[in-house]
Amino acid sequence: MLLERERERYARQILLFGDEGQERLKKAKVFIAGAGGLGCPIALYLAVAGVGEIRIADRDTVDRTNLNRQVLHRESDIGELKARSAEAKLRAANPDIRIKAFAATIDEANVRDLVGAADLIVDAMDNFPTRYLLNRQALRSGVPLLHGAVRGFDGQATTIIPGRTACLECIFPEAPPAEVFPVVGVTPGVIGTIQANEAIKYLLGREDLLTNRLLVWDGLATTLETYAVERRPDCPACGVGCDYEGTGEGIRPVP
């Protein structure tokens, strides 16, 4: 049941999708992997939209070099754990939601516990080994994965529904080389808000998602293009003969 102050806070959204839609957001749980350039805008917009529980994990501490793009963190947060810094800002932005922050390295041993009972997994990472780990957990649990990545003025995003769409390893069978990459702050802002938009649409039960399409943002040309992607039968993560072939039966519906 929405509180009166929640009805006031979300009045413009309720005009779009009614009390029922806002209740769906309030009941939802989302896991965000990363509290950096992508994780900050994703978490902020999901928090102010009224997503009931946000779980966010990041092992790093705030550094001055983060501040051009990681919009939840401030000069005064330098040296603070990113997870804790993000938690404080999100609680301040919306005290009516639950924030669970984890200062942890996401690995095979803890990924299941970190994701918990989340309805969505959001990839806001900066490296493909962890992205592949999140992809495998999404496939095992039947929970959708929202992928996003940025470099310089460029970014990309896609929505992965286990058993129904191409998974991350179908689209990117080989990881790009690890690097300290350049990035301007507006790029994760663009891609992060696209990921947050996808999360809200999914949680509301919308069908028009960014599935089997890779969205590519070119900030210098100011263009958005989408490219069709498809499942690969030989995919090591979801292809024929692997541990999870993706029937789609394990997908957990949003309450």
Rank of each mutant, 00 (worst) to 15 (best):
R24H: 07
P41Y: 05
G36V: 13
L46F: 04
R98N: 09
V51L: 00
G39P: 11
L25E: 01
V51T: 01
A109S: 15
L67T: 07
L139A: 12
A118C: 12
D58F: 05
H73C: 10
V30R: 07
A101G: 03
G116F: 06
A35E: 10
G116M: 03
A83G: 07
A93P: 00
Y132D: 07
D126V: 02
T130Y: 01
Y45S: 11
I54E: 04
N110M: 08
H73M: 14
A83M: 02
A104S: 12
M125T: 15
P95F: 13
G116V: 01
R55I: 04
V48G: 02
E23L: 13
D96E: 14
S85C: 10
G21Q: 05
D107Y: 01
L145H: 08
I121P: 07
R98I: 14
L38I: 08
E53Q: 08
G50N: 02
F17M: 07
I99W: 08
V115F: 04
N110H: 02
K29E: 11
V115I: 14
K100D: 13
S85A: 10
V71D: 00
I56H: 03
A93V: 00
D119H: 08
D96P: 01
N66M: 06
K29T: 11
A33N: 10
R74M: 12
E20F: 08
Q70M: 07
R59M: 13
G39F: 05
G142I: 02
A138S: 15
E108T: 12
L72C: 06
Q70V: 13
R112G: 15
N66Q: 02
A33L: 06
A43W: 00
D58K: 11
N127Y: 06
R55E: 09
R84M: 15
P41C: 12
V115H: 03
L67V: 04
T61F: 14
K27Q: 14
R64I: 15
E53A: 03
L114N: 04
D123G: 07
D119G: 09
V30G: 03
N68M: 10
V143S: 09
R69C: 10
K26W: 01
L139P: 04
A86P: 10
A88W: 12
A118V: 10
P95S: 07
E23P: 09
D60T: 05
D119M: 00
G79R: 08
A92P: 07
L38G: 14
A124L: 13
T65M: 09
G37S: 06
G116L: 05
A93L: 03
N135C: 10
E80Q: 15
A138Y: 02
K89C: 12
D77C: 12
F102G: 00
K27F: 06
V48M: 05
L120P: 10
Q22S: 08
